[in-house]
């Protein structure tokens, strides 16, 4: 179950709208601290496929300029 910490850069005029849409996405935990242009969230997924679908959906939201990843842990996905 991969977990990541992300920073999403958004168009200022659409920040509220992007926040609302991200808040209702399953697996997304939006952090209350943010700026007019930057949102911070943690993503939890069952597998890489779901994780990728989630990041794709966020990037496709109107008003999202980019998604950057600050932390990515996939320790229970690795066949150690």
């Amino acid at each position: 179950m991969p977990v990541s910490g992300i920073v999403v850069r958004v168009q200022q005029s659409r920040q509220q709208q992007v926040k609302q849409l991200m808040e209702v996405m399953e697996g997304v935990e939006l952090h209350p601290a943010c700026t007019e242009e930057l949102l911070v969230a943690t993503l939890e997924s069952t597998d890489y496929r779901q994780e990728h679908e989630l990041t794709d959906r966020i990037q496709a939201l109107e008003g999202v300029f980019s998604l950057s990843v600050a932390y990515h842990n996939f320790e229970d996905m690795v066949d150690a």
């Binding site: 910490g5 943690t42 842990n73």
Partner: peptide, 15 residues
């Protein structure tokens, strides 16, 4: 792990 993920993202965003 989630706390570490949030902490890294907050720090990178300057929050």
């Amino acid at each position: 792990v989630k706390a570490a993920a949030a902490a890294a993202a907050l720090a990178a965003a300057g929050l």
